[in-house]
Design a protein around this nucleic acid. Sequence first.
DNA 1: TCTGGGGTCCTAGGACCC
DNA 2: TCTGGGGTCCTAGGACCC
Length: 399
Amino acid sequence: MFVSGQAAILHADLDAFFASVEQRDNPKLRGKPVIVGGGVVMAASYEARARGVRSAMGGRRARQLCPDAIVVQPRFGAYVEASRAVFEIFEQAAPVVEAMSIDEAFLDVRGLEHISGPPEQIAARLRRDVRRLVGLPITVGVARTKHLAKVASGVAKPDGLLVVAPDREREFLHPLAVECLWGVGPKTAERLHARGIRTVGDLARHSEPALVSILGRASGRHVHALAHNRDPRRVDARRRRRSVGAQCALGMTRSIEALDPVLLALVDRVTRRMRTKASAGRTVTLRLRFRDFSRATRSRTLPRATAGTRAVLATARGLLADATPMIERRGLTLVGVAVSNLQRGPLQLELPIDRATALDLVLDEVRDRYGPEGIRRAVLLDRGARLATWLFPGEEPEL
DNA sequence: TCTGGGGTCCTAGGACCC
DNA sequence: TCTGGGGTCCTAGGACCC
């Protein structure tokens, strides 16, 4: 039982999200193995998972494992729509919701006993509401910490609810395999296995310096803290995105010239998204993947933040040109563009008193960030009062 | 396991500055 | 000309997550 006022966190995670939306919208798919995505499995229904199909698996392998699977093309619009509806229910259930992805969130439900009941009741109601109002199965883990809530939902999947009572935490955690910890992937697990460390309990018997010597500083400390059930992370609704990117797998390797339209499309996608979120970034990264699945990145940091198609494209082209010998040697199979070092929100500048100079500076800054082609309307505010409005392209400011 | 598209965080070396 | 210590920023790669 959770004591009143004690930390209580829900981790809510939609089950096989894309596949569940498909089954919801097409009754013929219900109860059957469904695979979303042809070339690569983007999601697999639990009926398909029972046959060994996993997400990120190659389509050919998936069809070998499950020849009677029904393969459907993804419908991202439907997933975004469903996600929005589910997050509305989350927002109703808790004052602080931290979205982790399109299908997953943490909810802080501390101190809601008198309004909504104890955490276990809130979680049960959340599951019912998502099922009733959106028609999707969802698993919820409940615990005092994010990590435990997350592990709990992982154990309870699919369509489950698992509450880790505060006095049962170690009992729950220590028998689990190290792979269950959030942040322990194949490489880390392998290193731990090589030293006979298989369960979280094994991990807890090693000192922090010992784990640091095996895994490195950050990873060693992280894993040590989690094994001892220490996780002070708060549910944070305002976490900001750090980068915006787009990538594209190439069916076949192409010449550098044939790559340019692809690069333009990627840059356009990325900068468009930045502009709609009033965001601009300074670092442009070109991501490359080669025939042998090795990867490389090349990046350049600009003197000022931009969301302009031209500025980002010019930088990306420069990076691509620098990487040409490597690409010709290794054969390109994927290209991506990302912008990081993001600055968000309205432009904020320190301005001289002179208004005409101020307007010029702001206009320059707007053009730098968004490019002449990237903006339709700009409003200059001085401590909340409207000073000027521009309509683009090429209009003089109305004062 | 022969591979999509979107992200996060950490490490390590080098340039540069005081 | 050679030498310290401390700090920031940039670049590239790697592990991990959904």
